[in-house]
Structures are given as structure tokens and as C-alpha cells.
Design a protein around this nucleic acid. Sequence first.
RNA 1: GGGUGAAUAGCUCAGUUGGUAGAGCGCCGCCCUUACAAGGCGGAUGUCGGGGGUUCAAAUCCCUCUUCACCCACCA
Length: 920
Amino acid sequence: MEKTWQPAEREQYWYAAWEESGWFAPAGDGDPYCIMIPPPNVTGSLHMGHAFQDSIMDLLIRYQRMRGSRTLWQMGTDHAGIATQMVVERQLAAQGESRTGLGREAFIERVWQWKTESGGTIAKQLRRMGSSVDWSRERFTMDPGLSNAVREVFVRLYEEGLIYRGKRLVNWDPKLHTAISDLEVVSEEENGKLWHFRYPLADGSGHLVVATTRPETMLGDSAVAVHPGDERYRHLVGREVELPLTGRTIPVVADDYVDPEFGSGCVKITPAHDFNDYEVGMRHGLPLINIFTIDAAINDNAPEAYRGMDRYEAREQVLKDLDAAGLVEKIEDHRLKVPRGDRSHVVVEPLLTDQWYVRTAPLAGEAIRAVEDGDIEFVPKNWENTYFAWMRDIQDWCISRQLWWGHRIPAWYDAQGNVYVGRDEAEVRKKHGLDPGLALEQDEDVLDTWFSSALWTFSTLGWPEETPELQQFHPTSVLVTGFDIIFFWVARMIMMTLHFRRQVPFRQVYVHGLVRDAEGQKMSKSKGNVLDPLDLIDGISLEGLLAKRTSNMMQPQLAKKIEKATRKHFPEGIAAYGTDALRFTFYSLASTGRDIKFDMGRMEGYRNFCNKLWNAARYVLMNVEGRDCGIDSEYELGLAERWIITRLQDAEASVLEGIRTYRFDIASRALYEFVWHEYCDWYLELSKPVLNDAQAGAALQTGTRRTLVRVLETVLRLAHPFIPFITEEIWQSVKTVAGKDGATIMLEPYPEPDPGRADPEAAADVEWLRRIVIAARNIRGEMDISMARRIPLLLRGGDDEDRRRSGENESFLCALARLESIRWLEPGETPPVSASQPVDGLELLVPMAGLIDREAELARLEKQLAKLDRNLAGVRGKLDNERFVANAPEAVVATERARLEELELHQDRIRAQLEKIRSL
RNA sequence: GGGUGAAUAGCUCAGUUGGUAGAGCGCCGCCCUUACAAGGCGGAUGUCGGGGGUUCAAAUCCCUCUUCACCCACCA
């Protein structure tokens, strides 16, 4: 084995080997276990969020596979309607072409072409993460099977009256020229103004004042509303006002919607361009005057002077004109929420259009109940509240998009505008008995991407066919996802699946946090703080990283700032840490549901951990290869062996519990702790005196070798779901000496703790041993005595148990504390002047002659004494409190009493030592 | 306006049913002791955001306040 673990070549080698062997596919006849991958954008690339999420899923999958479950990790990608269409449109624009120029068919052809070109990226990257997805079953939301499922669902919902078409006010994205759902609108507070305008009363008897944040919409006003109880304006209700600049008059209406406290208490009502005003308009039978084109420019319904102007241009003009007419009362600064499209980032416009909707309320009831009844369980549980809150107030879902890339809506129109819905045109004609000569046009629109995603758990398994996979793997076991798509995806999957399968889509939803940068900022291209998981795996130079972060920027002016920050955080670029280190970092940071700040320091630590494991394996092999490891021969387990086996059972139990409860931080810490601080720090050290002692019995040495190998082999299996590559690499080297002959660690059984193998006495003895060694090392360390120098140790006090233990473990003590000798003081014997350290009832003494500096020892003892005094004060405080003694459980009081005794003993000893040394 | 989460060592974070505050990184010493310097050994470091309360005992339970983050909601 090399001196350090070199992930670069070996990781890719092993992944290819696993994949070629077909080991990722479901196998065996164990209980089915299935995870559906949240389908990444087919043309996208892996970001830290994916890497995190995929690491978690792969851990669960590998764990289940090793346990013997029939395990399926269903792979697939999403066509990502808007996102993908935007990318291709941008490419076209760069070549001087356009979507509309190409025409629908050619454009879609181009998108498919782009999918073929770039569609492999994410798959390649997933492989680098070690993700053991079943590639043979890979699906795409627009492949024939899934498209069929989409049509089936649409038609059935339509026939059940759960899908309808209607002219409604929707969120319109004027840049992308499509409707978007409420969820795709993000509102942020921005600085704006509140303009107060005077609208003259039609009879010339004065005016009223309206306040607005959007002056240009006044061109579409069809009323002014006041609160019915507002005394100031009661007399105006029912009268008419002149709508400036338009030559129209509009009524004053009374409506509860108005807040008399806000602004002037009069609200201009623009039913075609504001959701609230729309409602008010409906209540009062007001006309809807749409003044915007699909670009949000002024259309022909507005006065001629404004036609063709962009909305912001129109705003300026309206303001100018109103000002000229002397109708501007005042202008105030105002913070307002501005709704923007989550993709285009332009301000969305409420616009009256024909769209398709899913009636969600009837679907929501079951979906709520499934979670209430525990058929679906969120982890952590508090996300259920978020889910409930949204589901109980759910709005109909606008599913049509005016895009070209996506599932075309299976609806056809005749020249009269009659709608026919069916799986295809032939079915429509047949079902409705339409004349073959009747011309039908299919709906131009496509479905919201999330519509097909909502069917993901069952469409990927072959629905509407009742396939064996569907039978076996549905409901799936757990959904691993981010909280940001609970509404977009999780809730809709639950509704659709319950409706069409009468089954939940998954039994658990594990909701993980967001991966943020070291400063807690969201990673985004525009902030230039994005980390590419592959750069962490393979490493990247500073120049490479800078180039990556500052190329193709939407806002090139930020490049300087990004460069500066990047130079600060990564002055030497990024080292190659390997996939295992990255994965382990994710696990260790994945505590319950909170966001994680990605910390390079931690990753370095876990890279070192991999290396530690690697070197432990080197040590083991070095001592074991070609020797008898007791696989089929006589062996004897010494104290250290019985202890490490005991600790291994504990570690296994902790790791399992961590995985079972989705506490990957706990599981990974248990592994780290065991490997580094038990196995390496102590057991490997304890094995040395045995293996190097010519006097030691052969059976004991065999038992030691056996245990070295077997514990290592078990730890590799225990760690494999976390760090698959290095464990496979090492396992291949140790499997033979460990008496194993499997082809791969990934199909070996997962370790299970066996309480019967625990040996509490051995555990206690080694615990004692550790304390003695640490105490001796403490004297050494504090006194700066080199490890090269062996020191004599004197023991005083203690009981028979202490004598037994020291007698049985002399060679361990000498080896680990680098002792020259151990000697018990005879009762009444006066020891030489020594440095000392109490351990329970025992006192360790190291003669000072030639070794220890008087002043240094005095300082050390003073320090210890001060610490003891603090502890003693605490304990005495408790025991002097009568109420504590009276009320606390006896066991707690007893512990404190014992502790007091011990502390006092130590205090006496240290005082005696101090006196003795001072008197020198 | 509602809701959620967070605040613990210089940094990133654990802390299970209340019972002596922990890890990693960083820091300070000493060590190239043949598995590992990506290492070993030893060490220092906290009014557990503030204030109340319950209790013999609170990082932990209750109330309240402050700060930060996020989610939802129609205030022109």
C-alpha cells in the first residue's frame, strides 16, 4: 500500500467496477427498499446541494443494500421546462437566432439536441460522488413512458372535473411570456414611492385623493373604493369621478377591502391588473380593462398617447401628465413588496388570460390526512406544520405554461373554440364522435414541469401499467429533499399519488438544510461563492477557480469583488480531497434540518481521517500478512482484544442508531471517534507490545493479529456507506487475511452489534489502564520529558484491584507511558522527592532526580490544586445544602459524597507534595 | 401581520429523559517514538444571547426580551 491514500485514480476505478458488475440494481429477496432521486435538471450540473443530498441517499441505499434489502435507487432526470428553454434561447440569441425565428418544431429539436449534448454531465458527476443509482432504469420526464403517464393523469383529472380551463388573473412573466404559479413568484421588499393623486368628482364639486405605488395602472382603473364605514367618504359612494388622462368617468364604490387608515382611505381599483382589485371588481360588477400587452407595454385599450410604451415608460409619462394637470397631491417614500418571477427576475404582472388549473382543494384533504395519521412522516417533524399550513389554505394550481419545451397539453379545439380533452387526437375524435373533416388544433401550451414531477414515484415504475416494480417498490421508503421544494414537489406528489394509487408516495420525508458558504451566504453564481463539488474532489488552482467564478457573468461589474473574496478564502486554490472526504464532511455537518455552512477546515479534518484509516490498515497488514491470523487456528484474546471488541459493539450500535434516526452527524462522529481514538490511539498501540514481545505466547499473538484484522474489516464495512471508495480499496487488501472471499465490500453484510461479545471487566481494566497512562504522560508532558527518555514510576496507595491491574498490565504501561520500571512503595516507605499525580485512590510518583525541574513541578501542582479547589467548592456547596441532601435521589447524593472524598484525598496529597518540594 | 429555526470555546458545530459543559479546526509547549508530520503526546480556552421563574439542581423545562436567518400572507 502507498504511504497515503490517493483518491484520484482509485475512486473512478472502483465506481466503474461496481457499475459494470451490475451491483447497483435491485437484487436478492430481502424486503424492498426504494428511494427515488429528486430528478436533477437533465442539462444541469451538480452543485453542492445535489452533492449533499446524493451523499445522504447513497448512504441510506448502501446501508440497506448491505443489510440485505432488495434495494432500488431510481435514477432519472427532469426536463425542467422554463430553465432549459431559457438556456437554449440564450444560446440561440448568441448566434443571432431566436426561438420564434426557428419555429416550434425546429426549436424543440434544438432543445433535444442540447439535451443529448449536455445531458451526460450530471450523470458523470453523480458517478464521481459514488452514487450507487440503478443506471439501467434511468428515466427522463419526457420519455415516452412518463409522457404517457402525464397524459393519462391529465385526462383522468379533467374527466373527474379536477382540471378546468378558465380566464383568470394570473401571474404573468412579461419576459418569458408565460403564466407562472404563485409559488414561482418571489416577493422582495424594495424601495418605492407612494403617489397621491387627485381624481376630480364628475360634478365638479371637488376631488378625492387616491394613493398608489403603480401610477401607470390608473389607465385601467374602473372605480375608486372607500370603506363602507368611513364617514369622510360616505357621501361620495355611488357618485362618479373623472379618471384623469382617459376621459372616462368611474364610480366610487364601498368595499370592506379598503383600510381607512392607509393612505388617503381611497383606493383606485384596477381589476385587470391587481389580484385584490380583481376581487373588488367581481363584487361590484366592474369592467375589466386590460391595458397591457404580453410584454407589459401599454395596449390599445389605453388612451392613444400611451400606447406602445413600456410600463415604466408609461409610469413616467402618466406622472408627468398628472403633474402638468396639477393633480399630484404628494409623493412619499414607501417600502413595498415587489413580485418577481423566480427565473426571469422581472416584475410579474397580474394579467387576464386563459389558463388550465388543477382544483387542489379536493385533493388536499387526503394529503393532509396521510400526514396527520402518520402514513407519511416528516423528519424533522416540525416540517409537518409548514406542510399543513400550506395545504389547509391551498390555491388552485395553474398548470399551463406558454412555453414550447414540455408536455403539450392534451386538449384540442375546433374552430368554434370547443375544447376536447383526450389521450390523443384520435381518441378525442372517437370519444366525441367528431367528423373526420373537422379541423382540430392542439392546445399550444405545455404543462408546468412540476406536473410531471408530481407523478415521479409511480410514473418511473411503469404506471399506468401495474408493473412488478410498482408492486414491489411503491410506496417508496423515503424521500430525501430540501425544504425549498416541499410545496412545489412534495405536497403535489402526495396529492397526486394518493389520488391515482390510493397509496402514499413514500413513508418518510427526510428534509435536509441548504448548503451555504463559509460565511453563511447562499451559494449563487452572482455572488461568486459557488463551490463545485468536483473541485473539492479533484482540486483546482486559484487561477482556475477565479476563471470559473468570473466567467459568463450576468453582472460583470462584480468580478473584482468576487476575485478579492476568492483570493482571500482560497489563496492557494483548493486541494484535491477526494469524494470520501467530501461525503464524510456532509454527514458530519448534517444535523437535524438546519442549514450547513460549508467549512473547508472540517473537510480537511475528514480527509485526514481517511488517511488515518488508510495508515491503520497499513500497520495491520504489515503485521499480519503472511502470518497466522487465527482464522482456522488456535488463538487467545488478551485484555486489549476483549476491550476493543467491546468498544466495537458500542460503535456499531451508535452508528446504526444514527442512521436509523437520520442523524448522520452522530453516526459519522461515532465512526470517527472509534477509528481514531479507540482503534488507532489505543488498540494499535496496545497491540505493539504483544506483537513485538518475543516472550509473548503464540496464541496471544495470533489472537492479536486476528483482532487487528477482524476489527479493521468490520470497521470498513461499518464505514462503507459513508466512505465507499477507500473502504473498498482497503477491504480488497484485507479480505483474504480476514477470511472473507466476497467480490466487493458493497455486498458484504452490514455489521450488527452483539451485546454478547461485550466484556465489561475488560472494558473497566482498559479504562483504568488509560487513566494511568494519561496521568503518567501528563507528568511527562508538563515537565517536558522527552518520550525518548524512559522514566521510573512509583505507585503508592491503591487497593488490591489496582495491584492486580498493574501487575497484569505492566508491559502495556511501560510501553504506552514509556516507563523504565514500575515499583509499588512498601507501606511506610518514604519515596524520593517526586512529581506526583493522583488517580482515584492511587498515587503516581516520578522521582525528580535529574528529570524534573523543581519550579516547574511546583507550578504544575499549584495549577492542579486550584482546579481541585474549584471543583471542591462546587461539591461542598451541594452537600452543605440540606435541601439537596433531602431531595435529590440517593444515588446522586452518594456520587457527590464519593466525589468529595476523592477530591479531598487528592487535595491532601497535592498539598503534601507541595510542602515537600518547597522544603527542598 | 402570522409562523419556523437559530444564538454554547477564536471558527464550524454536538449536547439524548434536568445531575461535574464536549468534538473538529485554530492556538501554546514538546516530539521525525519504523502505520500515519494529512502524525504523536501534553496543555489553555466558555456568566451556554439578556432578564425573570419552576426545581435540591437548568445549556436542557416555563415566561419574557434582544439579535439573526428563513417561510407564508392582498395592504393600495
